[in-house]
Design a protein around this nucleic acid. Sequence first.
DNA 1: TTGTATGCGTTATCAC
DNA 2: GTGATAACGCATACAA
Lengths: 354, 354
Amino acid sequence: MTIKEIAKLANVSLGTVDRVIHKRGKVSKETEKKILDIIDKVNYTPNIYARGLVLNKQYRIKALLPEFRQGQYWEMPVKGMQNAATNLSQFGIQLEVLYFDQNSVTSFNSAAKQLLSYKPDGVILAPVINFEAVKLSKKLKDAQIPYVLIDSLIQNSEPLSFIGQDAFQSGRLAAKLLCTEINLKGSISIISIKNNENYNSTLQQRIEGFKDYIANSDFIDQISLNESHIHVGSPDMPMAIENAIGTKENVDGVFVPSSMIHHVAAYVDRYRQRFPNLKMIGNDLIPNNIRHLEKGTIHYLIGQRPENQGYYALSSFYKHLVLGQRVAEDIYLPLDIITQENLKYYNNNFQYNF
Amino acid sequence: MTIKEIAKLANVSLGTVDRVIHKRGKVSKETEKKILDIIDKVNYTPNIYARGLVLNKQYRIKALLPEFRQGQYWEMPVKGMQNAATNLSQFGIQLEVLYFDQNSVTSFNSAAKQLLSYKPDGVILAPVINFEAVKLSKKLKDAQIPYVLIDSLIQNSEPLSFIGQDAFQSGRLAAKLLCTEINLKGSISIISIKNNENYNSTLQQRIEGFKDYIANSDFIDQISLNESHIHVGSPDMPMAIENAIGTKENVDGVFVPSSMIHHVAAYVDRYRQRFPNLKMIGNDLIPNNIRHLEKGTIHYLIGQRPENQGYYALSSFYKHLVLGQRVAEDIYLPLDIITQENLKYYNNNFQYNF
DNA sequence: TTGTATGCGTTATCAC
DNA sequence: GTGATAACGCATACAA
């Protein structure tokens, strides 16, 4: 059904129908009602091709993400975003990624300022520096620029959508797997490793979920927990790792609630004979972690499909801006459990998700 | 860059450019080369909107699948297909699903005949009745109708793409999880349950993978295996289950390489006190299986994202027919490990995969 | 308040 | 061999 046909049915010109559809006014109440009824009855949907052809709109989306080196976590969401950008370019979606230093508020603010100066049609934001992200989200709201949050949520925000993982549940799952692996008894070391100084709600929630699972299990008395915090790159990192896993009492399991588990795994691997039965579980399938999973140093990795997160983030804008569809508010990605056995098929078809 | 601009660059009319692009001939060698060079240099891609508008093509895709009742496995791929059909209808993709009785070759053949009479632009085929599916695939090839295979492959076929799972690897994964769960020792019962009489290569491969994992493990001597085959609906099914798991020696683990594990779970659940520590693993997250996973009767389910399989099947045709893109030949879906902990987030966003 | 005309980029037909 | 042109459905500027 086309506008022309609707116009004929309503005995008006297609200009009038168009004015009704786009609420441009200058139509009498009665003809408006008549046209709306017909539109409703025939279930009219505009032809996406004709619409796209005549509008010929370009939508500029800016992403604001932490800078990264090859093999680091943030490489993966970016890959997914760029993949989406390729597929969506024919629909006028344009992506540019701006980067900031996770340890520098100044760097974030200057990138944010630059971003706002572009007056983009949409923003993808990783709120790694929580407090500054909140301020930016307010500015975006004032400027009526829709934004998508990726990885973690921020307070009082009204994003077009949030795309990430339930961190608490992720921690619970890690606990279940690790406890089963160590046969429901022994000593577990939770090691929080970060490469920045910011408060990280995701890490925190994963740890809470981990503890919650054990606290509510019927083998709580059989498990002893200890927790440590390590900063990547600090000169005493080896000693910190040694303290976390090499104390007198044997540690049976290690949980690192971030992609940084490979640092511990490398240490364990170096002194393999000292840790013959240590079971390790962590997050994110970055190359360094995958290597240790293949080697057997790491036993489980929990994935959060970072490429898909990136892909979905841009897709949200395609749906919203191009198709005019309502988009899901919160998109929680599955908690993928990866072991040696299913590693090969993990996410090998994410590029197909369009 | 548009055809018009290319025409101007080449000092020809846009009709000539069009003839070159579509290889319609009637163009002199030299002008053809000149135009091709320009097209190549400016990296011309046709405007998808204008193209779609003028062609206004409808693509009729017919799917040929086993009939099912609510809650059965085939409901899920169909759901994914129909979801895709909704999203893709605006691009002219039309889907109709034809059903056949898995236990009736006649039913399959009459549905296949009907399908061919439609002269569809594409076919989605579930080769559940292997031999007949092979014959149909030949006819489709002769008629030059592209087809997508879903769930399992067939011999000597040349599908547009195959969408499914690596069944052997799925079996290996099941073995790993179950063996860990029973602490690498004990007695395991493999129960193959089917609701039809056809040879099922997927089941077979899963069982082989399962055995392969154990045969190549270092705890092979600690595990005893027995295997049984059961037909759903047969009056002696309870006794067959009893024989498989209720023998004198305790069975520690059960592996059912299909979505039919809930039949065993229901039996185990009814006589719970007799099987206090039985661990069970199976395939596919149909409602009956999910219920037993939540209850704890089933410990792991391996998912194969059937909705996504359906979605991808139709998407393949969108990519092939509408966008003219090359599509991936074999799409192996991830082997998802589902337990109580990550069940909630499993595949809750599959509808977003467009 | 309503109707008409033009153009978006591509395809396909027709005249030269 | 080549060029001109109508048509697809929609949005919009402008005429009435």
